[in-house]
Nucleic acid binder design. Structure first.
Lengths: 113, 113
DNA sequence: CGGAATCCGTTATGATACTG
DNA sequence: CAGTATCATAACGGATTCCG
């Protein structure tokens, strides 16, 4: 369930990498940088992620204290995800990573300001 | 061979994550930040990495243009690895990741200045 | 010394169908 | 709508042995 790949002593940044070092987590966090979003919105926005994997990622991010899950007991159900303060501190790092991409490879459709 | 986990369109930072999002690459890059090192030195310094995996990581990093491999045709053989300019630009990012770790979790033996 | 070659377990991610 | 439950697979990381 946890990223055992990044384990003690392997890397001085293993905890941040345990959070960012997966295929979908950076973009999930980045999407929540300004406003909360519902499960379905995230699923549609990311497009190619499966619901199972999205669920898994959201759970892990919540466990890591990076995001908050609000469940409204309605019908149909509604669940909103938002970044915690801790999660917000990851945004500039993600921006830097994306910027590195843009600097070292060309022509990305997605631009990070 | 490549990190297929970080694939096109999945993440605006997928290229940097393909480099940093593995168990050993950040620490390898960080170790080379000031001076070149030989295969055996890296192997000993990291301690718990297997030779196969170290070889794999070094090959991928070389392919990605992050480090340079110099082979001296001697006996016994000597191979030196060093960061390229492109590789050097990753160091501050790794430092930031490590710093994030230190800020959000306590008491790490390894401190990054 | 610096690998290469094999073999192998675990984990991350995915496709699909189903549900309160 | 927001998930669960199954099942499947490829890739990541590792142990071990052998080699010029």
């Amino acid at each position: 369930m946890k990223k055992d790949v990044f384990r003690y002593n392997s890397c001085p940044a293993y905890r941040s990498m345990a959070i960012l070092g997966s295929k979908w987590k950076p973009i999930i966090i980045y999407m929540l940088r300004e406003r909360k979003a519902r499960f379905g919105q995230l699923h549609a926005a990311i497009g190619t992620i499966s619901k199972k994997v999205l669920t898994d990622m959201l759970k892990e991010l919540e466990t890591d204290g990076v995001l908050l899950r609000e469940e409204f007991k309605e019908l149909p159900p509604r669940v909103e995800y938002s970044l915690t303060e801790k999660g917000s501190t990851l945004v500039p790092i993600i921006v830097q990573l994306a910027r590195w991409d843009n600097m070292h490879y060309e022509s990305l459709t997605t631009t990070v300001s």
